[in-house]
């Protein structure tokens, strides 16, 4: 017991002093000093690299304004809707494609090759179909996240241990029982991984659509800061957005029992 106690203590104290932490701190400090030097030097146009103090003040102003949370809510709602629609349809398509070799061979190549195309170019069509409001952003987000989710579900389904499927068959499970009791629990990891990838691209799709044409949401605020040339505010919004998205990504990974941020 004493051994483990000592070990645990070592594990707690060592990261504070470890060389890795020191290097990290040195890099962060170096970047900050460099940033501040560039900001103070006047080499670049004024405000392109604003001082850290200005960015810090902008972050505080941003986080204490109720308006920001309203826009954040709008964007979160759009992303949530996109992830729900895209996720469920992706799951369904993935189950069909992964469950039948014939269907997989017939349709999966289309998904596979359409997956990495730039989705934002569909935005004009989405505006025609769903109007200029939030629906077109949801549509673009849905389109973005459908592909990775469908593909990882289909791939995950093929990797299920055949023993589990035989168990289900021997219990004479119906098709939906097979899906609910065998396939879905066995595919937890690929599904979570697909949702994680899907969240990333849905976020990008939705926010980019907002920067292109909208009057609400975080994307709108970013492009508004751009047109007002309010650089500290733009930096503040990008920093908060990056922290939120990396956090959400890590959270989904943690929930699914994956590494917090899995290597590509």
């Amino acid at each position: 017991m004493a051994e483990t106690g000592r070990l645990r203590q070592a594990a707690i104290t060592s990261p504070l002093l470890s060389p890795v932490t020191l290097v990290r701190l040195a890099i962060i400090a170096g970047v900050l000093v460099l940033w501040e030097t560039i900001a103070a030097s006047g080499w670049l146009y004024r405000d392109v690299v604003p001082s850290l103090l200005a960015i810090g003040r902008a972050i505080i102003a941003l986080l204490s304004s109720p308006e920001y949370y309203w826009h954040l809510g709008v964007t979160a709602g759009e992303i949530g809707a996109a992830l729900t629609i895209g996720g469920l349809s992706g799951l369904l398509v993935g189950l069909v494609l992964g469950g039948s070799r014939f269907m997989g061979k017939a349709f999966e190549p289309y998904l596979y090759y359409l997956g990495p195309t730039p989705k934002i170019i569909f935005f004009p069509i989405m505006i025609m179909w769903f109007g200029v409001g939030p629906a077109s952003k949801v549509a673009l987000g849905t389109m973005s996240c459908f592909f990775p989710i469908a593909l990882s579900v289909a791939a995950g389904m093929r990797q299920i241990d055949p023993v589990l499927i035989r168990v289900g068959r021997s219990f004479r499970l119906k098709q939906w029982q097979m899906a609910w009791k065998i396939y879905l629990p066995a595919m937890r990891h690929p599904i979570i991984n697909g949702v994680r990838l899907g969240l990333g691209v849905a976020l990008i799709g939705t926010l980019l659509a907002e920067t292109k044409l909208s009057n609400r949401g975080i994307g709108f605020l970013i492009i508004q800061a751009y047109s007002l040339f309010d650089m500290p505010r733009m930096y503040a919004m990008l920093i908060v957005l990056f922290i939120l998205s990396i956090g959400a990504n890590a959270l989904i990974g943690r929930l699914g029992g994956l590494d917090s941020i899995k290597r590509l």
Binding site: Y226, F229, F242, S245, R263
Partner: peptide
């Protein structure tokens, strides 16, 4: 790895400036 999962493309207004 975190940068790989971050929505970097949203920095385009910054790059535009």
């Amino acid at each position: 790895a975190a940068a790989a999962s971050a929505p970097t493309v949203l920095m385009y207004p910054l790059f535009l400036v």
